[in-house]
Design a protein around this nucleic acid. Structure first.
Lengths: 113, 113
DNA sequence: CGGCATCCAAAGTGATACTG
DNA sequence: CAGTATCACTTTGGATGCCG
């Protein structure tokens, strides 16, 4: 059998966060620091489609990173926010960000393609 | 235009490490702490094919994470090792690993799917 | 030994239109 | 407003075989 994904905690984390829009969604929720409506996310991520936004939100919710709250009304209102679990990711995300910045700064700009 | 990938250092890091076998390759090189031959990697990652192994190694090399050294001989010998750049990723990888372990421990085992 | 070429399957992403 | 449904496309991973 191949290497079990779940053998490696690092791969578990990658599995949770891999998806074209998961980091952008996380960043938005983190920096606004308040529940965001579906439509606000849609507006903030100009290139995303509703189908994909819904998918990515469902997956993040499934993995316990965000929470979905429906406020039924004439016009339904849905808000998403980071759970405490989601918030706690900031520890390694900050470290990653630091590393990434150094990487970009250095003339190792291979990643440009 | 969509969010530029390169606007976000975290996404840059994800781009570098995303690939089915990159973390396993990294882990192997890190824990053995010595140059590994192509054939050793192939043996250690039971489910990988030669084509894919070569691809992932090339990408890691391109991004400055590993180094490839050819020792020409009757039988060619090729060794791969982490660069200092690659080694320095351990800082955030350790943090990710800690987080991932807690995540797995907690009854939030949603990620099992 | 350490690859590359070919072909194929699966996953991920997206455009568009429709709905309670 | 906050979604589904459908279909198309692109990217990634993999099986297999050949080569210097």
């Amino acid at each position: 059998m191949p290497v079990q994904l779940n053998d490696c905690p690092v791969e578990v984390v990658f599995a949770i966060l891999s998806g074209r829009w998961k980091i952008p969604i996380y960043r938005y929720l983190y920096k606004t620091n308040e529940p965001a409506r579906y439509s606000a996310l849609l507006r903030h991520l100009p290139a995303i489609s509703k189908k994909i936004l819904t998918e990515q939100l469902r997956e993040l919710e499934h993995d316990g990173i965000i929470e979905r709250n429906l406020y039924p009304d004439a016009r339904p209102r849905v808000e998403y926010r980071l759970t405490s679990y989601g918030l706690s990711m900031i520890e390694f995300l900050d470290k990653m960000s630091e590393w990434g910045e150094k990487y970009i700064q250095s003339n190792n700009s291979h990643f440009q393609k």
